[in-house]
Amino acid sequence: MVNKKKIPNATMKRLPLYYRYFKQEEHNGNDRVSSRQISEALDIDSATIRRDFSYFGELGRKGYGYNVSSLLKFFLEHIQGNDVKNVILAGAGNLGSALLNYKFANIHDKMNVVGAFDNNKALIGKKINGIEIYSVDDLERIIEIENVEVAIMTVPMEAGQETADRLIEAGIKGILNFTPIRLNTTPDVTVHSIDLGVELQALFFQMKIK
């Protein structure tokens, strides 16, 4: 079993990139790849790739590279997991609707979005990309019925903490947070925050110093 506590956050963030790369190589019919090929495809230096993989043991062989099917199996069993996780989306406004219109299978093939929630009566009962929008009053009920562990949160900033509290109380263990606030959660809940404003500022800064 992989001890994820010893793995740096930067490495963990690169793992989905590696998985997607090996998935594409399998689709292309390739049996093996080198760290140099991975480096060129993902724009990550070879030393970083070898160091990332070293946290999980001997995944490749010198002079041979990495076996595509073996690495895919490893990612599925030890990192991604074999089970499909049911996910909900809290907040079906502009950003939430845009996410619903996107093909979630392109983001993660082990994710099943079972519903979205909003307090806007004009949205409740509608479907976006086949996903029904429920009233926020049904939040806890759907989470329990569908055995949901993960929530994507795109509610307005002022509703962020209250929504997170309800999600956690209902049994959610992972939150992808698109609100620009730091959420207070219990230790057993994992939160990954994406602040689009901060990301844009980082992009502008990187463009300026190039």
Rank of each mutant, 00 (worst) to 15 (best):
V114E: 09
K127E: 15
I143W: 10
A122V: 02
V155H: 03
E146M: 13
S97W: 00
A159V: 01
I128D: 02
V114R: 06
I145T: 13
V150S: 08
I124M: 06
D165F: 04
G125P: 10
L139N: 10
E158T: 06
V148R: 11
A159T: 04
R141V: 07
I128H: 05
T154K: 06
A105P: 06
I124E: 09
H108Q: 09
I152Q: 01
V136W: 00
I152M: 11
N129G: 01
A122M: 10
D138Q: 13
P156R: 01
L100T: 05
L99G: 05
A151E: 08
V155M: 07
N106F: 12
E158V: 06
I145G: 02
E132P: 06
N119W: 03
Q161D: 06
L123N: 05
A98T: 12
K110P: 03
D165W: 06
N120I: 04
N101A: 09
I145Y: 08
N106L: 14
K110E: 08
Y134P: 07
E132Y: 05
N119V: 08
G130E: 07
K103P: 04
H108G: 11
K127R: 13
E144Y: 09
I133G: 02
N147S: 13
Y134G: 08
R141Q: 11
N112F: 03
D118W: 04
R141F: 08
L123H: 02
I131H: 02
N106M: 11
A164Y: 04
I131C: 03
